Amino acid sequence: MVAVNDKFPAGTEFVYVPFTPESADVKACGIPGPLNFDKEFGDKTVVIVSIPGAFTPTCMENHVPPFLENLSALKAKGVDAFIVLAANDPFVMSAFAKVNKVADDSVYFVTDPDAALSKNLGFTLQLPPGFGLRTGRYALIVKKGVITYIGNEPGSGLTVSSYEAVDAAL
């Protein structure tokens, strides 16, 4: 399991559908492609929020919205990028971003393919049949490739990975 002051796993690649004005409608699919963490964010401060699934009650209503509502406060504290991570496919993550009205180029709704990063970190969630293995509910702050905060939820609540917890850790 990963710990504070560990390096973020090298070579991590997400799958991501970049926002474009042409694909702004939720019915427009866009084209997924790789997003290499080291290349894009290696020298930046990044907040990563992992959710078990897009469009699920806690994620949709309580977890992601406070971060989006407070992007300017995060940026004022030096956050260069905000990433929402789930094992959902990239089209679902793109639609989740669109439904949340995200058009900020510092916000990324990305796929953790096969929950690979979350497995590597030790933060997966096994749900009942039909739902399968998912990314757990957690938050990370990564500064210049080093993990400076880990908020891995101990149960089904929303405490250490909440906006308030991350904001306090910045």
Rank of each mutant, 00 (worst) to 15 (best):
F37P: 11
N100E: 09
F131D: 13
A95S: 14
G155S: 15
A28M: 08
I51E: 02
D43T: 13
F109K: 07
G33A: 12
D105K: 14
K101W: 01
Y163R: 05
E22V: 03
A3L: 08
V92N: 01
V84E: 09
L158Y: 07
A168S: 15
Y149S: 06
I83W: 03
A73G: 03
P154R: 04
E164Q: 15
V84S: 07
I31W: 01
A95D: 00
T58Y: 11
G157M: 05
S118L: 01
P113R: 04
H63V: 02
G130K: 05
P57L: 00
G136A: 05
P113T: 12
N36T: 15
A103K: 15
I31M: 11
S94F: 02
K7E: 04
L35R: 11
V64T: 00
G53N: 10
L170E: 00
L85K: 08
G136E: 01
F55H: 05
T159Y: 02
V17P: 07
V64F: 00
Y163I: 07
D43F: 00
P113A: 11
E164S: 14
L117K: 07
L125W: 12
P65K: 09
K101F: 01
K27Q: 08
T12M: 09
G145S: 03
V26N: 11
D114C: 05
A24C: 01
A168F: 14
M93E: 14
M93K: 01
P66Y: 06
V99W: 03
G132M: 09
K119D: 09
F123W: 09
P128S: 11
A139H: 10
T148L: 01
T124Q: 00
G33I: 02
D89L: 09
M93A: 04
N152K: 15
G33M: 07
P52A: 07
G145F: 00
V17R: 03
I147Q: 11
D80E: 11
T56S: 14
D6K: 09
A165R: 14
S156P: 07
V15C: 10
P66Q: 04
G42K: 11
A169T: 06
P57Y: 10
P57Q: 10
V166P: 11
T45L: 06
G122L: 04
K119C: 00
A95M: 12
D112Y: 10
V160C: 13
D112T: 12
P9K: 03
A10R: 14
A76R: 13
A115D: 06
P9S: 02
Q126W: 05
F8Y: 14
V92I: 05
A165F: 02
V99M: 06
A86E: 08
F14Q: 01
A115M: 00
V102G: 06
V79Q: 11
